[in-house]
Design a protein around this nucleic acid. Sequence first.
DNA 1: ACTGGATCCTGCCTGC
DNA 2: TGCAGGCAGGATCCAG
Length: 299
Amino acid sequence: MPELPEVETVRRGLAPVLHGARFERVELRRAGLRFPFPEHFAQRLEGQTVIGLERRSKYILMRLSGGEVLVIHLGMTGRFSVAMPNRLGNTTGPSTLGDYVYGSGADPKHDHVVLHLDSRASITYNDPRRFGFMLLIGDGEIASHALFKHLGVEPLSEALSAAYVASRAYRRKADLKAFLMDQRHVAGLGNIYVCEALFRAHLSPLAAASRLAGRNGAANARSEALVPVIRAVLSEAITAGGSTLRDYRNIEGGSGQFQDDFRVYGRAGQPCVRKGCDGTVRRSVQSGRSTFWCPKCQK
DNA sequence: ACTGGATCCTGCCTGC
DNA sequence: TGCAGGCAGGATCCAG
């Protein structure tokens, strides 16, 4: 799936189209995604106005006028595309469908949900693997909901500090990779950005998470080094519009650019890009997921 | 209490 | 060219 930067890119793309918009008609093309859709899902959305669009971890939260929140997770392959009325009458080119500009480029057989707005724009959710999901939750129940209750801090907020990381990592036997992938500690990191952050921090993904904590669980040089690079990697990726490997697309159907800035991810067998390091990037498998790292400069 | 592994699903790439 | 097998950005559940 899209990790935090990709979800944030999608949120920013949807915001201008959705804010203040009313759902006129909601089309469900199947009974559910990863989970069945909520009961009377379409009817409960129709007529409601979007009053806010937020992100928590890798979830998009659409606040609705009726007091409910539409919670959306993109899974591995979920994407949104926006079709706008084409007032210029420009119907040329392969990216048009009827009198609407259609930008996703995705196979329409995986278009599962279409939100028709009062502005005549429509938003289509496409998800080949259907690992994504949509839920409706009362806005007062978000914090206590099972999905959110155990989430750790937002990595781009002040709450992510070396002291926090150290306190969570203290005496933890899991390796660093698994620790950072665990959403209960830091919410929103996934496989790619964990690999990239550990590379920048010179830390081995195989090392024990407990090495991020000093005596009594206080911050140490490693946790001090790690926190700013996590922020930097995520911020740079958001600026680049996220990363595109296979499936991820922004709402215009375009690619993110951050994959061009990967320093280790996907570079197995290639020379380490760190200045002065003559190591070779290796791929290994941790918790069933690919890890990329340089054994020479990540200790 | 923590941990790794299996699992949901489809598509794409690689190698035989 | 065809096909089987492996792999993919996530998160939850379960057994050990």
